[in-house]
Simulated scan of single mutants.
Amino acid sequence: MPQPRQSQVSLIDTPYYHCVSRCVRRSFLCGVDTYSGQSYEHRRAWVEDRLLMLSSVFAIDICAYAVMSNHTHVVVCVDKDKAEHWLIDEVLRRYHKLHKGTLLTQKYLRGEELSPGERITFEETVEVYRARLYEISWFMRNLNEYIAREANKEDGCTGRFWEGRFKSQALLDESAVLACMAYVDLNPIRAKMESTPETSKHTSIKKRTQAVKSKKRQPRQLMPFVGNPRQNMLKGIAFCLKDYCELVESTGRCIREDKAGYITPEHSPILTRLGLSDEQWLTLTTEFEKHFCYAAGAELMMKEFKRHTKHQRLRGMGRANVLFKRA
Rank of each mutant, 00 (worst) to 15 (best):
P2H: 10
P4R: 14
P4F: 08
R5F: 05
R5G: 06
Q6D: 13
Q8E: 08
Q8W: 00
S10F: 04
H18W: 01
S21D: 12
R25F: 06
L29I: 13
T34M: 08
Y35H: 11
G37C: 08
Q38E: 14
Q38W: 07
Y40W: 10
E41L: 11
V47T: 10
E48S: 13
R50G: 04
L51P: 00
I60C: 10
I60Y: 00
D61W: 13
A64T: 03
N70F: 02
T72A: 07
V76D: 00
V78L: 06
D79Q: 15
D79Y: 07
V91P: 01
R93M: 09
H96L: 07
T102H: 04
Q106A: 07
K107W: 02
P116A: 14
R119Q: 12
F122G: 01
F122T: 03
E123L: 15
V126D: 01
V126E: 03
A131S: 15
N142Y: 06
N144K: 13
E145T: 12
A151N: 04
N152T: 09
N152D: 09
G159H: 05
R160E: 08
W162K: 07
G164Y: 06
G164K: 13
Q169H: 04
A170E: 03
C180W: 02
D185Q: 12
N187D: 13
P188C: 10
M193P: 05
I205K: 04
K207P: 03
V212G: 04
K213E: 12
L222I: 05
F225D: 04
R230I: 06
R230N: 09
L234F: 07
G236T: 00
I237W: 00
I237F: 00
F239Q: 04
C245K: 00
C245M: 00
V248L: 01
E249T: 15
T251W: 03
G261H: 09
I263Q: 06
S268N: 15
S268C: 14
L271Q: 03
R273E: 12
L274K: 01
W281V: 00
T283N: 13
T286N: 14
F288D: 05
K290C: 09
A296S: 13
E299Y: 10
M301W: 06
F305G: 03
K310G: 03
G318V: 05
R319M: 12
A320Q: 00
N321Q: 15
K325H: 14
A327R: 11
